[in-house]
Design a protein around this nucleic acid. Structure first.
Lengths: 218, 218
DNA sequence: CGAATTTGATGCGATATGGTACAAAAAAGA
DNA sequence: TCTTTTTTGTACCATATCGCATCAAATTCG
């Protein structure tokens, strides 16, 4: 018989479709918004500096409920990170999907990146991937793999973008789409770091503009 | 009379020149190497995840001695960060100082950057500035100012480098030294992030090479 | 040698932390 | 109504953490 591990909390399988009537006492929270709050907090203070009490206060759930719904702190962090990536991917994929001129596409990508990095009530939140690389990625192989995945995914998206641009003749002949993609990613990483250091938006926008000019051969 | 604040531990003014004979019991540690050990640990695990016990074990000093020599945890972190910057500045300034072709100069800079970021017994240590931006910079104005200072210092060093190169005719006419400098910094930030995510050196070197090619107009 | 001075070592204490046990509460099903 | 199921809320535990107070140790100066 399959062993049922008690130490791995159930997925809290919420099935919203229809109204199949959940059986027991109803939840006093919505898992999605709670996870969003947790993500906000993790983005602000990082993994180690965020206590379960902080998370409990932010989500409105008490610790046992938190544990039951998302597992321990590490699992909650991982789920928060997944959600961050899903959101970021959704917002950028929508832009990459269009058949615009490269310049316009890059401008839009960086504009949304800045929106993501500069948002936050109490200071700019930066890029969660960059933050996680700086903190948990070294000691935790699973998290490291997720970060690596995020980095290469961005590289590939930019590479696709530049490859198409080259086919359309928007780039100089010698241009290497993948090299340009890595430069585009580097610019993303850089504005993420600078955002958290307090660099104002105007300055970041200037950096982005300069980088685009160089990448597209002015 | 000037109030003497007990809560600000003395600078532990070590005067090495000559041998002016310290008065009381001799130290069982060398402040410089202890600070180096503390820096190593902070770079590996970050501020919040590093306890005073960890620092005590790493430096060989017990907590009261740590406190007496460097102040509380935050002060120790700041002193560690200063030391990191001093070291990094020393190693890069030596390269920037030379009157080499830009390409060679950039190659050397990135090579030493990779040495710094990939070193570490237990995983690549990355760039302490980038790590600090991702963690303490948002909540702590003093630390944030130090990070900003580090970022602009690097920008300026690269800008000086490119300005000189342009004067020597090593760059295309349209090239803007400061824009190129920010791209060069961005590449630094990017390889720092990627290093901590586990990207192997070969790959990072390829990224650097591609970035240099683009910046110098191939 | 004894006084003065500086550092080291032990250990305390108040609080924070991650995680969990357990019973009450709120719903559905019989 | 009574059982079953699921979640909540309180309280708890073992440990970790930071900072410090206190005393012992080691050295120089008189």
């Amino acid at each position: 018989m399959v062993q049922k591990r008690k130490d791995e909390p159930e997925q809290s399988a919420q099935r919203e479709p229809g109204a199949p009537k959940r059986r027991g006492r109803p939840r006093a929270y919505e898992p999605d918004v709670a996870l969003g709050k947790a993500l906000d907090l993790f983005r602000r203070t990082g993994f180690a500096a965020t206590s379960l009490d902080d998370l409990s206060a932010a989500t409105g759930m008490n610790r046992p409920s938190l544990y039951g719904a998302f597992g321990d702190k590490r699992e909650l962090y991982i789920k928060s990170y997944r959600r961050y990536r899903d959101e970021a991917r959704a917002r950028t994929a929508e832009i990459f999907r269009n058949d615009w001129p490269v310049r316009k596409q890059l401008e839009r990508i960086y504009a949304t990146a800045l929106d993501i990095y500069l948002s936050g009530e109490e200071g700019p939140r930066g890029c969660f991937t960059v933050m996680t690389a700086g903190s948990e990625a070294v000691a935790d192989p699973d998290i490291r793999a997720m970060v690596q995945d995020a980095l290469t995914e961005l590289d590939k998206a930019f590479a696709f973008c530049f490859r198409r641009a080259k086919e359309k003749g928007e780039l100089p002949d010698g241009a290497d789409p993948f090299v340009l993609a890595q430069l585009a990613s580097a610019t993303i990483h850089s504005i993420a770091v600078r955002a958290r250091a307090g660099t104002p938006r105007k300055e970041l926008e200037a950096i982005v503009k300069g980088a685009i000019d160089v990448m597209l051969g002015k």
